[in-house]
Amino acid sequence: MRIALDAMGGDYAPEAVVKGAILAAEQLEKDDVILLIGKEDVIQPLLNEYNYAGNNITIVHASQVIEMGEHPTKALSQKTDSSIAVGYGLLKMQKADAFCSAGNTGAMLVGAMFSVKAVEGILRPSIGGLVPKLNGGFGIMLDVGANADCKPEVLEQFGEIGSIYAKYVLEIPNPKVGLMNLGEEEGKGTVVTQAAHQRLKANTNINFIGNIEGRDLFNDKADVIVCDGYTGNIILKMAENIYDILNEKNMHDPFFDKFNYEAVGGSPILGINGNAVIGHGVSSPKAICNMVLQAQKMVSSKLSERFHKKYSV
Rank of each mutant, 00 (worst) to 15 (best):
V42C: 03
E29T: 08
M68H: 15
E40W: 10
V42R: 05
V65Q: 03
V60K: 13
Y52D: 01
I37Y: 05
E49K: 15
V33L: 13
I66K: 06
D31T: 02
I37M: 05
I34T: 09
V42P: 00
I57K: 13
I66R: 11
Q44I: 03
V33H: 00
E70G: 09
Q44L: 14
V60E: 14
Q64D: 14
N56F: 07
E26R: 08
D32W: 01
V42G: 04
V60Q: 06
E67I: 13
L47E: 06
G38A: 02
E29A: 11
V60R: 02
E40C: 06
L28N: 05
M68T: 06
I59L: 02
E49D: 10
I37F: 01
T58S: 12
I57G: 02
Q27T: 03
S63M: 07
E70K: 01
G69K: 15
T58P: 08
D31Y: 08
H61N: 11
E29N: 15
L35K: 04
N48E: 15
V60L: 13
Q44E: 14
E40G: 01
K39I: 07
Q27F: 02
E29I: 06
A53F: 14
D31N: 14
H61M: 08
I43K: 01
G69D: 12
G54Q: 09
N51D: 11
K30E: 15
L35M: 07
N48C: 10
E40V: 02
E40D: 03
S63Y: 12
V60T: 13
N51A: 06
M68P: 00
Y52C: 04
E70I: 04
I34Y: 00
E67Q: 10
L35G: 08
P45E: 11
Q44R: 15
I59K: 06
S63N: 12
T58H: 15
I43H: 00
T58G: 07
S63W: 00
I34D: 04
A62F: 13
